[in-house]
Design a protein around this nucleic acid. Structure first.
Lengths: 346, 346
DNA sequence: CTGTTAGCGCCTTCAA
DNA sequence: TTGAAGGCGCTAACAG
């Protein structure tokens, strides 16, 4: 019955089941897929063998034979430690699971070469499609043509190149920022600093555009002394904020272009001299418990992921939308205010 | 040259390349794998065809043919929105990538049936192994025997059953908690509440054990009025904390058993009546900016993931450790103190 | 140097 | 109701 040796018994194949049940492989196949036309007696003999051997069909072999898709979706993000990306991933996973698919994950740590490598690896594994939060500003390597026609959906950034006709899920970077900065202006601020992302990036430029538009709306000129555009890092942001506060004529308010910058600024402000009004892009947990009043451009990062997965899913159906032109979805943002915990000033 | 129709040209196969280069498939195979023994002339003809067709080898077919592993690692977590899990996932991804593997991700949303479903799905896809942060307390369905001998590594919780001999990566739940609670006691507290996880869970029971041990060390009896053991939720924790503070003889300090509970407690304390000392398990971003002094049991969640991936990786090498007995790794914890931002009390 | 044969695990087609 | 042949995309093993 049971053998004593501990050889790690390779996975049983359908042939093993067939031999054990003394039928042909075809019969086993039929039973497992619930096809009719198998006698009850044979069926139960097969099922017994399946159970006895612990047989489990090889999905990889199935999809090869069926020429079917693998049911895998590639997801490429730049930094899973940032809640923005992990929530996005959660949204992708949830929607994918609902459509019977799984997510294969790649973290680029912001390196474009790694992004390219991951995308090609996914393509070689014959994933059904890929969702990318692009790390860089050139997306040529994401063209489906480069990837054997593999559908690609961009998240948080549109295709860099107009000729690159990819689906994309975006935030209202421009509108959200404009609204937030306008609110700062409405509160009477005239010297508002901008702690932004690299100007070359989509979000970096769009949010800066929103900052400028709000100033323009109010007839205020942009003062470059107050503009910092750099890669997101809480440490860098903290330092930049301190520098801004130390200017001869310091800003009275600050707009931070993403959650890293906002958090860094909070650290600096908390031990800064005067009170500076702070608004920023991205909502985050604990924003309500900080010692700094905050106005945040808020949205559902999970929704971004869900919508990206949905766009991709639509491309995988054999219907008309699958071959239609690229679509673009904008996830709405709203302004949220946190009064800030009153700090004692001894 | 180029055709005008927009049929979504199926991925070219090796046969297509062979025909296009007028050689046999074997020659193409050899060229692509860089095998010697192909004339330079033939080789370049093949490479030209590969480029022209945009051919990309099918990894699924390769691993089927080679009987090799898929290079996929299954990762099952309960809630990717919790930074603990997303950082763990990051650690797994990083180590996996270093060993040329990819991660396929599943979120259980704390449902054990979904966990089982995911694990079986991964097994069917012939992943090399699975890393699970178990959602429930019965791990029988994770036995490699149930999974065709697939290696399984547990994270954050040991196997429920002594007969279940699985690798595991753990935190020092007991020691960390004991140390933290001891510190509260050393500060003079005698009525310390415990806002814990379900007693049935490993972390729930271990951390409670630590809480008890610290009391025992100091010769203080546990007072059940101050003990709450419930599922982690910031909202629940906030409510429980409020209730504890409203007791006739309220606790003077509180130990929270995970990051959800700590955050919930902070919300309650922030508007609570008196000053209550707070210690908790799990460090988290922004702990330094909260209006509540915090003593946190801190560790590297990424390290948990890395070590889990390492244990799994070791099982996949054809060496002696791969077939050795189950191993257990404990990731160290340390106590971190945050003074808390001084709040004004008008 | 190049090609033919056979088969990984599974399933469609056709025959018995 | 069951089975045999053939092939999905690829590559070892063996010719020539």
């Amino acid at each position: 019955m049971t053998s004593l040796d501990r050889t790690p018994a390779p996975q049983p194949t359908m042939r093993d089941v067939a031999q054990s049940a003394r039928v042909s492989m075809m019969t086993v196949s039929r039973v497992l897929r619930g096809e009719p036309g198998v006698s009850a007696e044979t069926r139960s003999r097969v099922l017994d063998a399946v159970l006895a051997l612990g047989y489990r069909p090889n999905e990889m072999a199935r999809s090869l034979r069926l020429g079917r898709s693998t049911g895998l979706i590639g997801l490429v993000v730049s930094n899973l430690a940032n809640p923005f990306y992990s929530e996005l991933a959660l949204g992708v996973e949830a929607y994918a699971a609902e459509t019977g698919r799984r997510v294969i994950l790649g973290n680029t740590a912001e390196h474009t070469d790694r992004e390219q490598q991951l995308v090609h690896d996914f393509a070689s594994r014959r994933v059904d499609g890929i969702i990318v939060v692009p790390a860089g500003n050139d997306h040529a390597h994401l063209a489906p043509a480069e990837l054997g026609g593999l559908p690609v959906v961009l998240a948080a950034s549109p295709p860099s190149n107009a000729a690159l006709d990819l689906d994309a899920v975006l935030l209202d970077d421009f509108g959200g920022t404009r609204e937030a900065v306008s609110r700062l202006i409405a509160r009477g601020h005239r010297r508002i600093a901008f702690l932004g992302l690299p100007a070359a990036s989509w979000t970096g430029s769009e949010r800066f555009r929103g900052y400028c538009a709000a100033h323009d709306d109010a007839g205020i000129a942009i003062d470059n002394r107050y503009v910092r555009q750099q890669r997101p890092s809480t440490a860098l942001a903290e330092q930049s904020t301190a520098e801004l506060l130390a200017l001869p004529e310091p800003p009275t308010a600050l707009f931070t272009a993403n959650n890293r910058n906002t958090i860094g600024a909070c650290r600096a402000l908390r031990r800064g001299p005067g009170r500076v009004d702070l608004a920023g892009f991205d909502n985050f947990e604990l924003a309500d418990l900080l010692p700094v009043p905050l106005t945040l451009v808020s949205y559902e990062p999970q929704e971004l992921g869900r919508q990206a997965a949905r766009l991709l899913s639509d491309r995988l159906q054999p219907n008309e939308v699958a071959i239609g032109p690229a679509r673009r979805i904008v996830v709405p943002t709203e302004l949220v205010e946190y009064p800030g915990i009153p700090v004692s000033t001894p």
